[in-house]
Nucleic acid binder design. Structure first.
Length: 579
RNA sequence: GCGCUCGUAGCUCAACGGAUAGAGCAUUUGACUUCGGAUCAAAGGGUUGGGGGUUCAAGUCCCUCCGAGCGCGCCA
């Protein structure tokens, strides 16, 4: 355990228990970072009333019995009854060494590792990936990486939209355009034009509509030739998706695809099992479940439609099948859905029904990791100038191009290969970081200039801090690993500030995981980079006054760089050694 | 009509219910013979949409009003 705040927390809690006895049960004795000292404790204010004392009296008593003299150089009662703690530098140095010696840099493993299924990305076959998929993909990828980092078993599932009524129309269009031509069109990623052409025909031609409907029936009844054509569509699209994922540098692989069609065999079972549980009701010819607490616009109970009037299934059925599959086949105890906010009610209903049916019993849980829209400068959904949705691959290409221009300008002496590689890392990092660094629940405004800026809370600023550290070692020709056992001494204020920051990696990452909110880790890494930049200005490393100081600072630099690289790493962002 | 989410500095965003609401951009002012200036140091800028309430303590929780976005039966 490296984070001093986590470390001292137990001792403070013990002191509160000793002072408050029964009254202290349930009182929040958490220790938090503070700008007035290293850490602050607020529990006395909550406890005072129950004990009939003033908060300051409680705080004083807590400090009398708290066993913190070995780790705190100062502990004071302040203001209305806060306790301010200052850690002693020997303690910090010891924790730095402990952090440096661990390959997880002081981050605690999950006390009870879970099996987690995470549903994210979910593009549609024969439809272009756009910025909405970017959010799901990037947030999902970051969560996958950090959940694995702390020791959970994570199953990635890409719930591709590969089934349903649109496929009648798509297959008929495929037949019309000829397989070779269609495959060419799809393989170069021109998915939207294929979809649009099909849609246009469907809207304009009644005979085509009839063919499309008939084709849906053939598809669902398992007609061989229809399935072959369907598979062609799916294969071309997923090949394209994988290409985007590789470009984007996310962990999703072809084997992670669990499309809607994968649950087809389970759909009749969903109906059957709900029927046996007496949960199904026939309403307007459809088989539905009325989940408690959901009403429609007439204030009537709102149904979850399990089987349509025409006998077909829809997405609610398929989502319930997913829950069954994830719980019963995969034995998952946490189901994460990285899906946009508009689906909130739908997912709540699915969860409610799954619980009622007994398929999702505590402590198993289903969590909607919801996110807002990507907006353009006009505050509306991001669109191209012509009003189309922004294609993901075009957006990524532009990011790398813009980064390349910046790299060439700042660092013209680099080789072309190095420039290209750095441009890729910086450009993609900027796009991902822009997405991850704001609270996912809110909409965010997409702005090239801001995300690629080297000032402020951006990927390039963090990457630059990392590159600068690498540069120190490169210049002095010192092996990074060779300084890791050095014993640090903290003397300068900026040095101490950086040390404190480095040690908070553990709690920052856990805070992020607990809330499924990557922006919290981003904020931490930004603060870390800022602390380093300030340290860098004020504390010479290679030209330190003594060898001890130099070694100490080298050790701190290496640790900072490792935290930065690892932190960016679990966000799915690379940290180049030079840029 | 009902429901969900959001509203914080001119702009873009932070802030487990904790003290004096913090950053970046923009504006103003400093710092390059010193490890990468893609940087650092500093200043000004706020009735946290309005009004009630709960609490020792509210941007945060509850109620209400205003504004924005999104949902609300056979598309996914």
């Amino acid at each position: 355990m490296a984070d001093p705040i986590v470390y001292v927390e137990q001792r403070i809690a013990a002191a509160f228990a000793k002072v408050g006895g029964a009254a202290a049960v349930g009182v929040d004795t958490a220790v938090r970072a503070s700008d007035r000292a290293d850490a602050q404790v607020n529990g006395s204010l909550a406890l005072a009333k129950a004990m009939g004392l003033t908060p300051r009296e409680v705080a004083t008593k807590v400090l009398e019995v708290a066993e913190i003299k070995d780790i705190c150089s100062d502990a004071q009662v302040a203001g209305p009854g806060f306790i301010n703690l200052t850690f002693n530098n020997q303690f910090l140095a010891r924790e730095l060494m402990s952090s440096s010696a661990s390959d997880k840099l002081g981050v605690r493993d999950a006390t009870k590792p879970r099996k987690i299924v995470i549903d994210y990305s979910a593009p549609n076959v024969a439809k272009e990936m756009h910025v909405g998929h970017l959010r799901s993909t990037v947030i999902g990828d970051a969560l996958v990486r950090m959940l694995m980092f702390v020791g959970n078993t994570v199953v990635r599932e890409n719930h591709v939209g590969d089934w349903g009524t649109p496929f009648g129309m798509l297959i008929e269009h495929l037949v019309d355009s000829g397989e070779t031509h269609a495959a060419n069109e799809l393989s170069v990623g021109d998915l939207d034009s294929f979809y649009r052409s099909a849609r246009k025909k469907f809207d304009e031609s009644e005979p085509f509509q009839a063919r499309a409907r008939a084709r849906v029936v053939l598809l669902q009844s398992g007609d061989k030739e229809t399935l072959r054509l369907w598979k062609l569509l799916v294969a071309e699209s997923t090949r394209y998706f994988q290409m985007i994922y590789r470009t984007l540098g996310v962990l999703l692989e072809g084997t992670d695809i669990m499309g809607e069609s994968a649950y087809n065999a389970l759909l009749p079972q969903v109906v059957e099992r709900l029927g046996k549980l007496k949960m199904l009701t026939t309403s307007d010819g459809a088989e539905v479940v009325f989940a408690e607490g959901f009403v429609n616009r007439e204030n009537q109970p709102l149904p979850l439609i399990i089987r349509k009037t025409d006998g077909g299934y829809n997405y609610a059925t398929s989502d319930l099948a997913c829950v069954i599959d994830r719980v019963e086949r995969l034995n998952a105890d946490l189901l994460l859905y990285v899906v946009g906010a508009p689906q909130s009610q739908h997912l709540q209903m699915v969860a409610a029904v799954a619980k009622q049916a007994g398929w999702l019993q505590a402590p198993r849980e289903m969590v909607h990791v919801s996110f807002g829209n990507v907006l353009g400068a006009d505050k509306k959904m991001l669109k191209t100038r012509s009003g189309d949705t922004v294609k993901l691959d075009a957006l990524l290409t532009e990011a790398v191009e813009r980064a390349a221009a910046a790299v060439s300008e700042k660092n013209p002496e680099l080789s072309d290969a190095a420039k290209a590689d750095i441009a890729r890392i910086v450009g993609l990092g900027a796009v991902k970081y822009a997405d991850l660094s704001t609270d996912r629940i809110k909409d965010y405004t997409f702005d090239w200039d801001r995300m690629l800026s080297f000032d402020g809370n951006t990927a390039p600023y963090l990457q630059y801090a990392h590159a600068r550290i690498c540069s120190i070692f490169r210049r002095a020709n010192i092996e990074r690993a060779s300084v890791r056992n050095f014993s640090p001494t903290i003397s300068h204020a900026a040095e101490r500030d950086l040390a404190m920051r480095v040690l908070q990696f553990d709690s920052a990452l856990w805070d992020t995981i607990d809330k499924y909110s990557p922006h919290r880790l981003c904020t931490y890494l930004y603060d870390l980079a800022a602390s380093f930049s300030s340290f860098y200005e004020q504390c010479p490393v290679l030209k330190a006054e003594t060898e001890t100081e130099r070694d100490s600072r080298l050790m701190l630099c290496d640790l900072t760089a490792r935290v930065m690289q690892t932190g960016l790493g679990v966000l799915g962002i690379e940290a180049p050694e030079q840029m």
